[in-house]
Each structure stands twice: as C-alpha cells, then as structure tokens.
Amino acid sequence: MLEIAVGIILGCCALGAGTAMIAGIGPGIGEGNAVAKACEAIGRQPESKGDVTSTMLMGCAIAETTGLYALVVAILLLFVAPGIFIDILISTIG
C-alpha cells in the first residue's frame, strides 16, 4: 500500500512539473515578437543598433519572468516537494 502511495506522490509531482512548464509558451511568443520588432527597427535605422539591442535584451529578460516562475515551481516540484510529501505521508501513517 505504501509503495502505491509513494508512487502516486512521485508521479503527481512529475505531472505537476510538466504541466507547470506549459507557461513557457508565453515568454516564447513574447520574446519572439520583441526580437522580430527589434530586427525591423534595426533594418529601418541601422545606426541605432546598440540602443535597440540593449533595450531588447532588457525587455526579453523581463518578459522571461513568468516563464522563470514556472521553472522555479517545476524545480521545487521535482526536487523538493516529493521529500516533504513523503515525510508527511510517513508521519501520518506512523
């Protein structure tokens, strides 16, 4: 019985981590848009390349934040949560 319970915990943690990383779609689309617009801007005004590039990197980093939240949640679910949940399970069974 305990094996099944531990298996369910590990499996659900892995599923949750995988589901959390769906959030990676958002920053991907957003950063793609940002880089496309930056390329257009450089094509129109090649002399402003330095400014456009640094602003674009800045914006990309901020757009990435939501994806990184998802990543932190996924990493916590993969490496930290199973141990805590299994401890709780064992302490309740006694």
């Binding site: 990184l68 990543l71 932190v72």
Partner: peptide
C-alpha cells in the same frame, strides 16, 4: 521577481 529571475536563469 529580481531574485527569481537571476537565480532561475543560472539554475536552469
């Protein structure tokens, strides 16, 4: 968000 951004990028 500042802490998570830096830490998440390096760790990932």
């Amino acid at each position: 968000s500042m802490a998570f951004r830096h830490y998440g990028n390096v760790l990932s």
